[in-house]
Design a protein around this nucleic acid. Structure first.
Lengths: 343, 343
DNA sequence: CTGAAAGCGCTTACAG
DNA sequence: CTGAAAGCGCTTACAG
């Protein structure tokens, strides 16, 4: 009905200038303004339930108190968990967040970045797909504040908050080796993304540190576009044949789920026939008699730190912060110590 | 570096007024503007990669081409799926979306609505928690365009797009009855929300239509705040005791997951010992030898329709649209026909 | 201590 | 057919 009250409405009602009202409501020049008039202004603002028009504020200040968030796919549980933590942290700081899904498509991601920037977001949180280096470099040259989330490019000197993927995978494989498993397979994605490469490196280094070299046939890199089918095939190959593995590690939550599904289908018993370590937690874990050991990412902390760093960068876009958070290995029933006889 | 080009920059370069440039770029007064100058304006705009400042536009037009979306919890797969479909539809129409999670808390939800409105969103998509009637009524009086998503209040004449929950549950129970099950339990939430009540009504009516009355002990309404524990208890009670059920229907995805988990823990065999019908699809289903029969919601269509309706309402906030979408029962191995002997 | 005035970047009713 | 001018609702450098 009656349109929203503006600064002018308050000013008129009190016979003062809009400037004065603005100063009071923003707590500027506090000590130079009469106490009396200040309280009366605040009172009227309250009465009218005054809410500043963010568009006008934004136009003037070039700040919108809005953050842009780009994830791979908001419908994916991992992305959704990231988003939730970003939302909470942003809200606490008085920011709202606009989101978009890149679908792992660099063209769509670039487009999304432009759209969000066009909406005058103050800064961006991006979990980038492969192939975004050029766009991100441009962004940096424009001094647009952004921080990468979950993924980053070693070739780019940008802010990021990600998992220590190398350590995460190293730790998982080391756990299996110390538990007496020696034929360890890895199911990972065939992708250029650095964080996946790091997981692979962790796997290989852990093996080497135990004086084992990895067989090529034990490292399965599946096509992300055809993950379910290829994972099934990878599992089949790993568990059958002349030299079947005695343990499998998965390098992502989707791979874990697809892998477990195939193992059940093949009637492979966990852990009797095969030890398993998953990546990330899934609803599905709770359904196992032997709940899987898994690599736990500090998702909330990742988002929280990234959001905080971004907020800091708003005032100093050149202050680069790079954070690698440690993963936690949650040891459960799918990877028990091997008896000495078998080892 | 160099700041973003404005209308003025284009105008100056061509020695025309900003007004002319604005007209051309917005395709207003098309036929009344010289072709020559129009093409030159467009050319320069392209060269400078002109992007209109949305804040300024918004201030002037009171339209931001931004939608607000409030879900229960963006980290919940169902909410995330809703969000994704909203995003896609909005993007196609040139809108972006700001989101927030209500955590099923009406106070937080109201707060969120105010924040989003304050950000000048053009309209709201809301999956409301219980107890939002008053706030929504106020919203309606202010002629703020909004459409409810997934949930709605029968007492309120507002736009909404939701599942036909009554039909969904009726259909599921009818399927079990026709398959020869007669002792059917329901695990639902103890909540004031209408959509849950409708699911309960579907259950009861289906039983009545088959000349069966429901035992009170077969309808378990668990506390949403303590769902895991109470579902486990409900399952224990339903499957043991003097009159155990021969089938269980769940009224939500969380309940389904918690229920399945408990059934596995109790070594109840599905479907040999117990038939099961779940609500919504879950990753976890793929892990079952006997994949569960479940009620499938048209999540994407729900969001899509809601978004379209909202977009329509932007120009006519009083045009109320109410849509109840049909659910689909996906019959799988967890609810096979009972042999005649057992029935 | 207070306020008039300019201006952020647009749109559009109005005048020519 | 074209453009000067007002104004959306704020903020802030500047003048008193």
């Amino acid at each position: 009905m009656s349109k929203k009250p503006s600064l002018k409405d308050i000013a008129q009602r009190l016979g003062v200038s809009t400037a004065l009202v603005s100063y009071v409501l923003n707590n500027k020049k506090e000590n130079r303004i009469g106490k009396e008039i200040a309280t009366r202004i605040r009172q009227v603002a309250n009465e009218l339930n005054y809410q500043p028009n963010r568009m006008a504020q934004g136009l003037k200040t070039n700040r919108t108190r809005t953050l842009g968030l780009i994830v791979a796919d908001i419908a994916n549980p991992f992305s959704a968990a990231l988003a939730r933590a970003v939302e909470d942290e942003a809200e606490q700081q008085g920011y709202t967040v606009i989101f978009g899904s890149s679908d792992e498509n660099p063209a769509k991601c670039s487009q999304l970045i432009d759209t969000l920037l066009n909406r005058q977001v103050d800064g961006l949180l991006i979990a980038p797909p492969a192939g975004m280096e050029a766009k991100l470099t441009t962004l940096q040259q424009q001094r647009t504040p952004f921080v990468l989330l979950d993924r980053y490019y070693p070739s780019l000197h940008t802010s990021y908050v990600a998992l220590n993927n190398y350590q995460a995978m190293y730790h998982a494989v080391d756990h299996l080796l110390s538990s007496g498993y020696h034929r360890i397979g890895l199911v990972t994605f065939d992708t250029a993304l650095f964080h996946m490469a790091e997981r692979g490196r962790g796997y290989l280094t852990a093996l080497r540190d135990h004086d084992l070299s990895a067989r090529k046939s034990w490292l399965k890199a599946v096509d992300p576009c055809n993950a379910a089918v290829e994972t099934a095939k990878a599992i089949r190959e790993l568990t059958t044949g002349a030299q079947p593995v005695d343990a499998v590690v998965f390098a992502s939550n989707m791979l874990t789920l697809a892998g477990l599904q195939q193992l059940i289908r093949l009637h492979v018993r966990i852990p009797d026939d095969l030890a398993v370590v998953g990546f990330d937690e899934t609803d599905a874990y709770s359904l196992f008699y032997a709940p899987p050991t898994y690599i736990q990412q500090p998702v909330s902390e990742m988002s929280q730190q990234a959001t905080r760093i971004l907020l800091d960068m708003l005032d100093a876009p050149d202050r680069i912060m790079q954070v690698n958070l440690p993963a936690k290995l949650i040891v459960q029933a799918s990877s028990p110590p091997q008896s000495v006889v078998n080892s």
